[in-house]
C-alpha cells in the first residue's frame, strides 16, 4: 500500500468518526466562539481595541480549540482499545502520524474558517490580502496539528493527559502563535511583503515537526 493511501485511510477514519460523532462541530467550535465572545468582554468593544488585536485573539482561540481537538483525536483511540487496532493494523507509524495530523488539520482549518468569519463580523475587521491569510493559516495549522499529534500520542494512556497536553503543546507552538499573528496582521493590513518571513517561519516549523513526527511516532505509538 502506498504511503498516501495509508495516510488517507487513517485520516478518513478520524474524519468519519468526527462526521458521525460531531464532537468538534458541536463542542470544540462553540468553545472557540465563546472564547472570541469573552475577549469582547475583556477588551471593551467601544475602545476599538478588538479590530486592532483581532489576529492575536483569533490565534489564541484557535490554539485553545486545537488542544481540545488533539485530546479528542486520542480519546477516540482510547475507547474500546481502538489504539490496539491501530497498532496491529500493520500501518507504518509515519502513515498513522501523517493521517492523524491531516485529520486534525482539516478540522482546525474548518474551525478557523468559521472563527475567521466570526472575527470579521464581530470585531469589525477588514480583510485585504486573502492569499496571505490562507497560506499563513495552512502553514500554521499544519505545524499545530503535527506537534499536537506528537504530544497527543506521547500523553496517550497517561492518567494526567488532559492537563499534560496543554502544558507540553502551548510553549512548543509559541513561535507559531507569534508568526501566525504577525502574518495575519500584515495580511489584514494588505502588506504581504511583511508577511513572507513569517509564512516561511511557519512553513519551516511545520516541515520540521512533520519530520520529527515521521521519525518518532511509530515508537511512541508502540509505547502508548
Amino acid at each position: 500500500m502506498s504511503l498516501a493511501r495509508e495516510v488517507w485511510l487513517v485520516a478518513g477514519k478520524d474524519l468519519r468518526v468526527e462526521a458521525r460523532s460531531r464532537v468538534t462541530l458541536n463542542q470544540v467550535l462553540p468553545f472557540g466562539a465563546v472564547v472570541l465572545l469573552l475577549f469582547a468582554f475583556a477588551l471593551d468593544p467601544d475602545r476599538g481595541l478588538l479590530s486592532e488585536v483581532a489576529p492575536g485573539l483569533f490565534w489564541v482561540a484557535v490554539l485553545l480549540a486545537a488542544v481540545l481537538a488533539v485530546s479528542r483525536s486520542f480519546a477516540v483511540e482510547a475507547e474500546h482499545g481502538a489504539i490496539d487496532g491501530l497498532r496491529l493494523s500493520g500501518l507504518d507509524g509515519a502513515s498513522v502520524f501523517l493521517g492523524k495530523t491531516l485529520a486534525i488539520a482539516v478540522q482546525l482549518l474548518l474551525l478557523e474558517l468559521v472563527l475567521g468569519i466570526g472575527v470579521v463580523v464581530f470585531y469589525d475587521t477588514a480583510v485585504r490580502s486573502v492569499a496571505v491569510l490562507v497560506l499563513a493559516g495552512v502553514a500554521a495549522t499544519v505545524g499545530i496539528a503535527a506537534t499536537g499529534t506528537l504530544f497527543g500520542v506521547l500523553a496517550a494512556g497517561l492518567r494526567t493527559r488532559e492537563t499534560l497536553v496543554p502544558l507540553l503543546l502551548l510553549p512548543i507552538v509559541a513561535p507559531v502563535m507569534l508568526g501566525a499573528t504577525r502574518a495575519f496582521e500584515a495580511g489584514l493590513d494588505g502588506v504581504p511583503s511583511e508577511a513572507w518571513p513569517w509564512v516561511q517561519l511557519l512553513a519551516l516549523f511545520a516541515v520540521l515537526y512533520l519530520g520529527v513526527g515521521v521519525l518518532a511516532f511509530g515508537s511512541l505509538l508502540e509505547d502508548a
Binding site: L154, A174, G179, L204, L208, V212, A216
Partner: peptide, 17 residues
Amino acid sequence: IAALIAFVDVPIVHFSV
C-alpha cells in the same frame, strides 16, 4: 523524545522572537 522535540524548538523560538 519529548526532550528532543523541545530542543528543536529552541532555535525557532529564538529567531522568531
